[in-house]
Design a protein around this nucleic acid. Structure first.
Lengths: 185, 185
DNA sequence: ACTAACATGTAACACGTTACATGATTGT
DNA sequence: ACAATCATGTAACGTGTTACATGTTAGT
């Protein structure tokens, strides 16, 4: 039940067409809430039907086929309600941890290469986040900037710290593998 | 496509009935792969139909209604194949980060209380993980223990470090909120 | 006019969630 | 004998994923 709220947030930040939303779900918003274009179009249709968003009149729409949407008061109210509501954290799901546990039973053959590959991917993501931080949140006195900016920085910090954790953990895991006896199981 | 493999891993560690599996998915395995009993029964039926597991004969089954399953060679082979196969990490999804981003647009009213509640939950989980670590992996010389034990410890370490990250990040977030002007937006 | 890329969608299916149903066992 | 709990399931629904379909713009 979060995709509609992710879309409302994105549209409040900037009215967009389906494809523009899809692009944004591949970058900023997608860093913590991914969605494919099929999901987005499906949800845009639903939100329009419920009167939470509306298509902007064609004149304001750029170039032929694009339909842009904006949030209506009902949508903003629903987003505010959802944001303030108490919600339980969902249990994490991580395939690599599951595979590692499985490898303790069926053998570690083959998994080490993928650990290396994941390490490289997380390092790349970490670098990307750090570049965004340098560009959008240049170092200044602590407690600086608009409330909005500080909240956005907080979210980015979570991304940076999470990727830092994964790179460290994967490095540690690979070091363990190096010490493991040749082939167990 | 991971639930069947989670179940195969659990059954290899110890043949179990549906309910016993459900219990284990509420503790150890559920820490990184949760599942409800409905999912588990559905998947047990499928795996049995595919010849990857089989029900143990009734004599070996404890008390009346319980059906216990064990993994067949085909199931073990499939798990080994899946564990060794290269898989892309799935993008994370985190509702709290989404809500924080939304609160930068519609206002932070109400979210602070839930940040506090989540902090308490993560602290409790962290404590639980640390107790498990003390009990199952008592400090000894580095590089000690069976390969299986070291892999299991590695997985537990990921859980501990993740919860540590969340408690630190939430603490930081609450400190930011304390500095924010009264009501923004 | 032809092709490639863009933009919006539909359809079918896999997976996860919630609510309910049913029989067996245990405790009183 | 009755109620509570245990244990296994079914049904309906919502969300996410994959594959495909269709029309549009831009470049050659």
């Amino acid at each position: 039940m979060s995709l509609p709220h992710a879309i409302l947030t994105a549209l409040l930040e900037k009215p967009s067409s389906g494809l523009e939303l899809t692009r944004r779900f591949d970058r900023s918003i997608g860093y913590f809430w991914s969605a494919t274009h099929q999901q987005i179009y499906r949800e845009l249709g639903r939100l329009e039907g419920e009167g939470q968003i509306r298509a902007l009149p064609a004149e304001q729409t750029a170039r032929g086929g694009k339909k842009s949407y904006e949030v209506l008061p009902a949508g903003r109210a629903e987003l505010a309600r959802w944001t303030a509501a108490s919600q339980d954290p969902k249990p994490h799901r991580d395939t690599m941890l599951l595979r590692l546990r499985a490898s303790a039973v069926v053998g570690t053959e083959g998994i080490e290469a993928d650990l290396r590959r994941h390490l490289a991917l997380h390092q790349r993501q970490l670098t990307e986040y750090r570049e965004i931080e340098e560009r959008d949140f240049p170092p200044a006195g602590a407690g600086t900037g608009s409330p909005q900016g500080r909240l956005q920085h907080l979210v980015l910090r979570a991304g940076i710290d999470l990727e830092t954790f994964w790179t460290q953990w994967l490095t540690h895991a690979l070091a363990e593998f190096a010490e493991l006896p040749g082939e167990n199981q």
